[in-house]
């Protein structure tokens, strides 16, 4: 945050209520909560995360415990009762008699797990590369940014798909592929804001104090580059979920034993034309709701952090 923006945000409130102290963080949080749609998105997203975490407690059955499946219940439409009196399948069942609601809850776990783990690794790698490039400049900068540019000139889905085609399926492999295609976005984002910050007086002051390079980079430079990083990370987590779903849909993502939402949709795709729409439709709805909720939050964050839109 620049000092000017801080003071201009502070002044009118300080005049009215001298007691309350307005920090940039509070202003951003308040700005975020002014938009009802974004708050709605956040609430939905938190609910989805909770549901995914507690799936084993909430789900009517464990969809991957074959003992709990009843083949007689295969292909039932939404809302039908179990043939063996086991309860109602609110979202129908697939061919093996698997409760779609349970399958979706467990699928959400895989989708969110893959997205968040890959996000964390990609951020660490990308942020380190981007800060290093901006801080040292010169040859280090041009080397790192050449690699970033080279990678970003190819579509993420192409790179990920080819990697998985050569490696085979697997949750760990999907995560590595997603890290490889995502780190460059963070590197570019952090570098572009860090290169501006690195020229400011406080960094020079830190140099004068003879602090170590890593201390200046990660304690002084990085915290001031966070706003754009947060926005990109929010958008990217939705992208990661979508990309994982696409890869799994194409048959190159997670294995059949650990189906994510994308794989559930792919399984249902075969029954779509014969009218059993629910096997494919409901996992898709869950996927779409998750992605849209994250994007609502991301859009608002972008506006709140954008200094040009601040009055």
């Amino acid at each position: 945050m620049s000092d000017d923006a801080f003071i201009s945000g502070l002044a009118p409130i300080a005049a009215a209520k001298p007691v309350s102290i307005d920090t940039p963080l509070r202003r951003i949080v308040r700005g975020f909560f002014e938009d009802r749609l974004a708050v709605f998105g956040l609430a939905i997203f938190i609910a989805i995360v909770l549901v995914a975490i507690f799936a084993p407690l909430i789900a009517p059955q464990n969809p991957y415990d074959l003992a709990q499946l009843d083949v007689l219940d295969g292909g039932l439409p939404p809302g039908s009762a179990s043939m063996s009196g086991g309860g109602i399948y609110y979202l129908g069942t697939d061919e093996q008699g698997r409760d779609m609601l349970s399958a979706i809850l467990y699928g959400l776990r895989i989708s969110l797990l893959v997205a968040t783990v890959s996000l964390a690794f990609a951020i660490v790698i990308g942020v380190t590369a981007g800060t290093t490039a901006a801080y040292f400049g010169g040859k280090v900068d041009s080397l790192i940014m050449r690699v970033v540019d080279l990678q970003l000139s190819f579509p993420a889905i192409l790179i990920a798909l080819i990697l998985l085609a050569l490696w085979g399926r697997g949750v760990d492999k999907v995560i590595i592929a997603l890290v490889i295609v995502q780190w460059a976005y963070y590197a570019r984002t952090v570098r572009s804001s860090a290169i501006v910050e690195a020229r400011k007086d406080y960094i020079e002051a830190a140099h004068c104090l003879a602090l170590s390079h890593s201390r200046i980079m990660f304690h002084h430079l990085l915290p001031n580059c966070l706003p754009p990083l947060i926005v990109v990370a929010t958008v990217q987590i939705a992208q990661a979920i979508a990309l994982e779903a696409t890869l799994s849909f194409l048959g190159a993502g997670v294995p059949i034993t650990e189906p994510s939402l994308g794989l559930l949709i792919a399984n249902g795709y075969n029954y779509l034309l014969s009218g059993r729409y629910w096997v494919s439709l409901f996992p898709g709805v869950a996927l779409v709701v998750t992605i849209v909720a994250i994007n609502l939050v991301g859009d608002r964050l972008r506006d709140v952090f954008n200094p040009r839109l601040q009055k």
């Binding site: 779903a245 194409l250 949709i265 034309l273 009218g275 849209v292």
Partner: peptide, 18 residues
């Protein structure tokens, strides 16, 4: 922008073809 491409395609098939 945000909905996965393949999902949009499936919806199109569901609506316009099925």
């Amino acid at each position: 922008f945000s909905l996965p491409n393949f999902w949009q395609g499936l919806l199109m098939i569901l609506i316009f073809a099925v």
